[in-house]
């Protein structure tokens, strides 16, 4: 009984520590953990998409709010979607984003990440954490994260690379699909996009 209480207590402490982790500390910790693994993993460096996706699934996904991302990419259409449509859209968009994000991990070649100074304003629930990727001989590339505070701690809802928001860059394409085939048309094209990418990965694995 005592052990059980001790476990519960520690579990509770651990959970609240995680919830209190400041957004900049969270970004740094996750980035360091992920890049440490990529540095040691020859398969990922050689472009093994499956392994990169597994890594992102395990380490990065828990800190992303994909529902918010999907809502942001859809704009006002999001509110017109039924809960089922919203769920399907979130699922498909998540699959697509994870693949893109994993892909960029396989291109990582020991570039240094610098974290810009960050102070958390009191009571803030929506912040921007800024980092820079330094490559010798090139202008540093900005990599910024938008985070919001929820019940489960800080979560990323947009990633901005060199000033390009990965989420809002889908706005027009989503609007275009919705105009042509409605929300279900958008779901269908996202699903078929994911399917063809998946079969491409499977083909590469067979080689």
């Amino acid at each position: 009984m005592k052990r059980l209480f001790a476990c519960l207590f520690f579990g509770f402490v651990a959970a609240s520590v995680a919830a209190q982790e400041a957004p900049d500390a969270l970004v740094k910790r996750v980035t360091d953990e992920v890049l440490e693994i990529v540095r040691k993993d020859k398969d990922i460096q050689n472009g093994n998409a499956r392994k990169a996706i597994e890594l992102v699934d395990a380490k990065v996904l828990p800190h992303f709010n994909f529902q918010h991302m999907t809502a942001l990419a859809l704009g006002k259409e999001w509110r017109k979607a039924t809960p089922q449509q919203q769920e399907r859209l979130t699922q498909e968009f998540k699959t697509l984003l994870v693949r893109t994000y994993s892909n960029s991990l396989t291109a990582y070649r020991n570039e240094a990440i610098k974290y810009k100074p960050f102070t958390l304003p009191a009571g803030a629930t929506d912040v921007l954490v800024r980092t820079e990727i330094h490559q010798p001989g090139n202008k540093p590339v900005q990599l910024d994260y938008n985070l919001e505070k929820g019940e489960a701690g800080w979560k990323v809802y947009d990633v901005v690379v060199a000033g390009i928001s990965l989420v809002t860059n889908y706005r027009e394409q989503f609007a275009q699909e919705v105009r042509n085939g409605g929300l279900d048309g958008l779901i269908a094209s996202l699903a078929s996009k994911n399917k063809s990418l998946e079969s491409g990965t499977a083909k590469a694995e067979k080689k």
Binding site: L96, T100, E172, Q173, E177, L190
Partner: peptide, 10 residues
């Protein structure tokens, strides 16, 4: 190639 639904718009 992988991320875009419509490469031109992307």
């Amino acid at each position: 190639e992988e991320a875009a639904l419509d490469k031109y718009s992307y």
